[in-house]
Amino acid sequence: MNMSTQETDGSPISTDVRTTENARADRPDETVVATRGLDVYYNDDQALDDIDIEIPENKVTALIGPSGCGKSTFLRCINRMNDQIDAAHVEGEVVFKGKNVYDDDVDPVALRRKIGQVFQKPNPFPKSIRDNVTYGLEVQGKDTSDEDVERALRGAALWDEVKDQLDESGLDLSGGQQQRLCIARAIAPDPEVILMDEPTSALDPVAASKIEDLIDELVEEYTVIIVTHNMQQAARISDKTAVFLTGGELVEFDDTAAIFENPSDSRVEDYITGKFG
């Protein structure tokens, strides 16, 4: 069974698991969010332990790790959603574009317009599709236009599917469409960063793949930080991956291809290959 006449194997190995465009990967990293010595406690329980990280602009950063490792807690620190949890206590700094978001003069509501969030379960308001999109702008006291609605819905890859039913309830959409509506709502105020906490875990594979495609487009304009339990999803869509392990420790943060091909830390190797977790 002679299958080739070429005996010397000069082909480069092809195990690059990243599917995002190489042009994006080659962009130099400009930090948009950085944490320094970040500790978070829920009462006396430490959820995050001395996290230092620099998250690059206009890239997708995935946060992975076993349940209870603090990755969602970390996400909520970035736009101060932890403020709403009485037991939570934050120490250290979260720096967004040079400013510590925990400084006294930072308005959390204004911060969340710049750092939007999409949750695990689609949570459109019981309002029309149009009102769901304009809600964030109206809260800011801004006038809204049809152009604003179209821009946000196009940005969320939903416009073509809903343009003729903008006054119908957002709750009548499918789960995947509802999640994209939530993304439209998040991008309507023109944020810089979008936080996503397991945004596809409640969706079927087709709807999930649409969200993944959308993330690939969103990152041209925004920085995306996504918590996911699906390691293959992290490998597919992210440029950088941060691995948190039990105890709230950030064990490794590197290019996604490096994490999934040759992690430096043996605990990360054990976790991503399923030897524990």
């Binding site: 195990t15 698991v17 390691m231 293959q232 999934f260 091909e261 992690p263 190797e269 991503i272 290959t273």
Partner: peptide, 12 residues
């Protein structure tokens, strides 16, 4: 199995 890291290198 979608192997990664050392497992992926071993299989490939």
């Amino acid at each position: 199995q979608q192997p990664v890291a050392g497992d992926l290198r071993f299989i490939t």
